[in-house]
Amino acid sequence: MGTPDLNAAASRMDAADIQHFYSSRSWIEGSALEQLEQVASLQGMQKLAAFPDLHPGKYGPVGCAMLSSNLYPQLISNDIGCGMSLFVLDLPSRKIKIDKSANQLAKLDQTASNAAKQNTNHLEANGLSATLHPGTLGTIGGGNHFCELQMVDHIENSDLATKAGLDSHQSCLLVHSGSRSLGTEVFASILQKQALTEAEANTYMALHDQAVRWAKLNRQLIAERAASLLRCDCKLISDSPHNLVEVIENMDGSRSFLHRKGAAKADMVFAPLAGSRDALSYLVHPTGRDDNALASLAHGAGRKYNRSSMHGRITRKRSVRDALIHTSFGGRVICEDSQLLIEEAPQAYKDAGHVLKDLTDLHLIEPVMSFKPLVTFKKSSSVSSSKKSFNSKHRRYKR
């Protein structure tokens, strides 16, 4: 057990089998396929499932599930328990005023910073230590994390939509976040280890499971605070983590470890499938028909271009960059970090509709409904003068 160096992964004649759950319409970067093959050659690796959102990551491919007799924490990395939660609001979509909602959701960071005392109570109420990183609980973080106000766009399966408690007149919140500073701390404790003893592996899994619970609570609090700003209540429809390890007890008494990196748990009734901030997102019903998929699914569109390359792909013209806080759906994006706004531009992502079609054609899912983005919150507090909003005339959407 240990943390793999993929560049030094030895070739194995009996490399694990890789199942590709995508079609030729899904654009997959060559380096992601190379990483996938390197992981397949790791000691103890048994089976891999790759999905249409597959793309290269820092320690291994993102958008895949990996079953192994060895535990490899580095394949999960620091954001342990990261996932997406979909909540329905008791706020009819017809009553939503986008500008007003954007102004309210722009206060989300402020509500989190004022909630340290409440956070200790929330931690204890959920069986977690009150000292377990209360300062970052209820915060979204950077990268591709977000809280998005959505409205139902189209219902594909009315029976399943009814089962989910959703209809065509409702609005929802989709929250994407993880374990924040807690996950970073857990990962740092094992990052430099080339191998884990059984005792160390057990310790890691205990800390890992704690971080997964913390991450779920984090998404819940983000949604509750966002709903409060919108003067409504929220109800959870689906919580689907996509960065985690599950321990599988085998019939012979041995253990296997199912690593999911950017691959949503599919052993549930419903799972969200996120698009970019200027694309539809979806609610799907996993069918569980193919065991080779390792009870997993694509978690979203997946990156097409890495973050650094986006600075060369987005023109420096102010009009083009200003447009990044608007969407083709008439929605708004709240983000005062101009670099993050560019790195997470819609152009950086694949077509979520293609991901949905691949999963549907392969009978891994049944589409339930689609959602239109109205307000996407990413970050409203400037962390340095160099990262302040470059579009002051639209600051009312991003305070």
Rank of each mutant, 00 (worst) to 15 (best):
A9G: 00
S11E: 10
R12P: 00
F21D: 13
S23W: 02
W27D: 14
Q35R: 05
L48M: 13
L48R: 11
A49L: 09
A50E: 05
D53N: 06
H55K: 14
G57V: 04
G57E: 08
K58H: 09
A65H: 11
A65W: 07
M66K: 05
L67P: 12
I80E: 03
G83S: 06
S85M: 08
F87Q: 04
L89Y: 02
D90T: 13
S93R: 10
S93W: 03
D99A: 14
N103P: 00
N103L: 06
Q104S: 12
A106Y: 03
L108D: 03
D109K: 08
T111W: 05
T111I: 04
Q118M: 08
N121R: 10
H122M: 00
A130Y: 12
H133D: 12
P134F: 11
C147K: 01
E148L: 02
D153E: 10
D159Q: 11
A161Q: 12
A161N: 11
T162P: 04
K163R: 12
A164M: 02
L166N: 06
S171F: 09
L173T: 09
L182V: 12
T184D: 08
T184C: 00
A195M: 15
A195G: 12
A195Y: 14
A201H: 06
T203H: 06
D209C: 03
A211S: 13
E224L: 08
A227K: 13
D233E: 15
G253M: 00
G253H: 04
S254W: 11
S256P: 10
H259N: 03
R260I: 04
A263L: 07
K265A: 10
A266Q: 09
D267A: 09
V269A: 06
R277V: 10
R277L: 13
L283V: 15
H285E: 01
H285C: 05
G288C: 04
G288N: 11
L297Y: 05
R303S: 05
R307C: 03
G312F: 03
K317L: 07
R318I: 13
S319Q: 06
H326G: 02
T327K: 03
G331R: 13
L340W: 02
E343G: 06
A348E: 09
A348Y: 05
K357H: 11
T360R: 06
H363E: 14
L364F: 04
M369I: 14
F371E: 06
P373T: 04
F377C: 01
S381P: 01
S384V: 13
S386F: 07
N391C: 15
K393D: 11
